[in-house]
Structures are given as structure tokens and as C-alpha cells.
Amino acid sequence: MTVRTPIVRPGMRVGLLGGSFDPAHEGHAHITEFALRRFGLDRVWWLVSPGNPLKEHGPARMDERLAAARQVMRHPRVEITDIEARLGTRMTADTIAGLQRLCPAVQFVWLMGSDNLVQFDQWDRWSEIAARVPIGVLARPGSRLAARQSRAAQIMRAARLPEAYARLLPMMKPPAWVLLNLPMSPLSSTMIRQGRNGRTDKEGMAR
């Protein structure tokens, strides 16, 4: 089966924002628009995943999450995709490898919140991810300091670029990463789900 990607041209700079988006919210839109500007990206693809292997419970149905994401993120340079399901991948390393095979002339950048950098060393083949694509890290409430002190950040210390070099990140040979500070949005998918369910207990921030 041929897997189709959003339309791209050789040399385009494309940010990849992965997650369950359960549900998508304005915080996701906020960091996406910020990443487009600061990293000089031509496009951002939201990779709405079949499910996050690090989470105990599965997300809502894919079609529901895609529809909700398209309501939240209405930007001409942002594509909402189910390409992980089409590729048949669940792990980020496999997804990136698949996209690089399909679009070898595209300059991909993996985008993540600083809360994900804190646990990045727990991801499957995380060092392979860092070796494949530059990584743009966007500050999230309560995790900036922990992200800077995380095991992955310490191991990749020599590959970190100053914020002033953010626009060069897509052209950098990996490993390369930038941690960007930005105006904070306190929203998380976990908080929204808890509000809908009338729950007050705390869980980890959603990807």
C-alpha cells in the first residue's frame, strides 16, 4: 500500500508534532504557531497517533481526535494527519524513519514540549531519534528547569544550540536541539479530560 503524505517540495522545513491529541486544545495550537515562526518552518504536521505506548489507557477514537484537532488548529501551513496509522508505526523512531524514506529531500524537525524532554530518555530508541532529526523543544509550564537538567539534556549537552540560532535548527545536522522559552499556556489534554469527567486527581502532562 502506498502511503501518501501532505504535499511538500524538496528542501521544505517541516516540523513534526506527535501525540494522542486527546483532545487537541489551544495549547497545542499556541506552541505550533510559535514553532512555525521561531524555527522558520514551512509547515507543521500534527501526527495524531493511534496510541501512546507510555500511557496506560488508550485514547478516544482516531476519527474523533482528527475532527477535534481540525477544529482547534486552522492554519494554512499546518496539516492534521493520521500518517502514523497509515505507516503502521507506534514508535517515534519508526515514524521518523518512515517519513524520511517517503520524503528524503525534506528537512524534518521533531517538536516536543519540555515536559517530554524530561522523559525523553525513556522513549524507545531515543538516541536514534536525536541522530535522525534536529529537535525543537518548547517550554511547558512547570518543566523548564527539569528539562534542562534531564538525563537526555545532559547527554545531548554538546548538541544544544542557543535560542538565537533557532531559525538555523532545520538546516543543522543532527544531533542538534534548541530549547525555546515562550509565553505559557497552562492547558493540557489531561486537564481537559479531567474537567469533562469531573476528576480532580493529577496525571502526567499529555504528549
Score class of each variant (00 low, 15 high):
Met205Val: 14
Gln107Trp: 03
Ile135Gly: 00
Thr190Ile: 10
Ile135Asp: 00
Met91Glu: 06
Ile83Met: 01
Phe21Cys: 07
Thr5Ala: 00
Pro175Cys: 13
Asp115Glu: 10
Thr81Asn: 02
Val8Trp: 03
Ala159Arg: 01
Val78Ala: 04
Pro186Trp: 04
Glu163Met: 12
Pro6Lys: 06
Leu187Arg: 02
Val72Trp: 00
Glu163Cys: 14
Arg90Ile: 09
Leu111Cys: 07
Met1Pro: 11
Arg90Glu: 04
Val72Tyr: 00
Thr2Asp: 05
Arg61Ser: 09
Glu84Thr: 11
Ile135Ala: 00
Val3Glu: 09
Arg140Glu: 01
Val137Leu: 11
Arg125His: 01
Pro162His: 11
Leu138Glu: 08
Thr200Ile: 13
Arg207His: 13
Asp121Glu: 10
Ala158Trp: 02
Leu168Phe: 07
Ala85Glu: 02
Arg148Phe: 08
His30Thr: 13
Asp22Ser: 09
His30Gly: 06
Trp45Arg: 01
Met62Ser: 05
Gly19Val: 02
Gln122Trp: 06
Gly11Lys: 01
Asp124Glu: 14
Met12Thr: 07
His25Trp: 10
Pro76Asn: 12
Gln194Ile: 01
Pro23His: 09
Arg196Leu: 07
Met205Tyr: 04
Arg148Trp: 03
Ala68Asn: 15
Leu117Gly: 01
Ala67Met: 09
Leu187Gly: 02
His28Glu: 00
Thr81Lys: 00
Leu180Lys: 04
Ala69Ser: 14
Leu41Arg: 11
Ala206Cys: 08
Arg167Thr: 06
Arg13Tyr: 01
Asp94Asn: 14
Val133Arg: 05
Pro104Met: 13
Leu179Trp: 02
Gly51His: 08
Pro183Asn: 13
Arg196Thr: 05
Ala105Val: 05
Ala67Ser: 11
Gly51Phe: 04
Gly27Phe: 01
Arg160Pro: 04
Val44Thr: 14
Arg196Pro: 05
Leu180Met: 06
Arg140His: 08
Trp45Val: 02
